[in-house]
Write a protein that binds this DNA or RNA. Structure first.
Lengths: 157, 157
DNA sequence: ATTGAAAGATGACCGCA
DNA sequence: TGCGGTCATCTTTCAAT
């Protein structure tokens, strides 16, 4: 992958904020012509620096969601167990994020469910019937703010 | 906000996956003409169902990041303390997500830092000098997969 | 960096339930 | 009247110079 100059970083910063801005608008902000901006964006997309562009939906518009943080302790810590578990979590749409972590627990999940009944269904299907899971603890998010994945780039735009 | 029919849900599902698809492509998938699809997307953007569209960057392309999960226990649990803390966290770009939670801790943060030196700097600035923070525990993510915020919509496209 | 061609989005209008 | 379809126009993108 390419090394990024300050123009690239500024473009990425803009795109992280709002990917619907035209090359012309971004170019204006970063001090580049529309065509040059476009070329750079194209390259950043092609080399994978920009992984993808997605729509962020409003949870309340979709009937509201509950966010849960689940800490999981595996019953046995073999390589295979971990890989299997990772692979399984990839299939569960309610699992937003999955971290394999240091400390007294093995995995931390961030989940979003319609309601606790929904959560119950998922735990039965994926956790209770799963021999690699020893125990899990669920924390309910009362309020969630700052939902995002913007990587701090340290440039002003 | 509007109530969403199955066309809308399918469109949203497509947009969550990849917001760069043209109305023509999405229309084909959901069974609508390009213009009708376009009209619906426009409406979903205007009424806030689609909050925004953003670029997801590749962490490794940006020199690699370390993800941390930080559990925070406030020293005193007043309303003002919580609001102040929320407001402060909003200002820290390295704080990706911030959850106010049930259980033995008050907040759980998901952070992304360049390295532990970077984390040290942030803790000094925002945590140690913060009277409302009693104690905090840091968990390091060895591996992070399934980074995302896609809301499960329960429709096939 | 400019320009011209192709692609996509937007808006007007028609028709159907 | 509301919503989808078609067509014409304008904007944006993309490639070649």
């Amino acid at each position: 992958m390419s090394d990024l100059d300050s123009f690239d970083l500024k473009i990425l910063s803009c795109m992280q904020e709002n990917s619907r801005q035209t090359a012309e608008v971004i170019g204006e902000k970063v001090g580049l012509s529309p065509a040059a901006t476009q070329r750079r964006i194209k390259k950043l997309r092609e080399d994978g620096t920009i992984k993808k562009e997605v729509a962020i939906l409003c949870p309340t518009a979709l009937g509201g969601r509950t966010t849960l943080i689940v800490q999981i302790i595996c019953s046995c810590g073999g390589e295979a167990t971990i890989e299997t578990f990772k692979q399984q979590m990839t299939q569960v749409p309610e699992v937003q994020q999955c971290y394999y972590v240091t400390g007294s627990t093995d995995f931390i999940l961030v989940m979003t469910v319609k309601d606790m009944k929904d959560f119950d269904r998922i735990t039965r299907k994926w956790f209770f019937s799963n021999p690699s899971i020893g125990r899990f603890e669920t924390i309910v998010a009362i309020d969630t703010f700052k939902e995002g994945f913007s990587i701090p780039l340290g440039v002003a735009v």
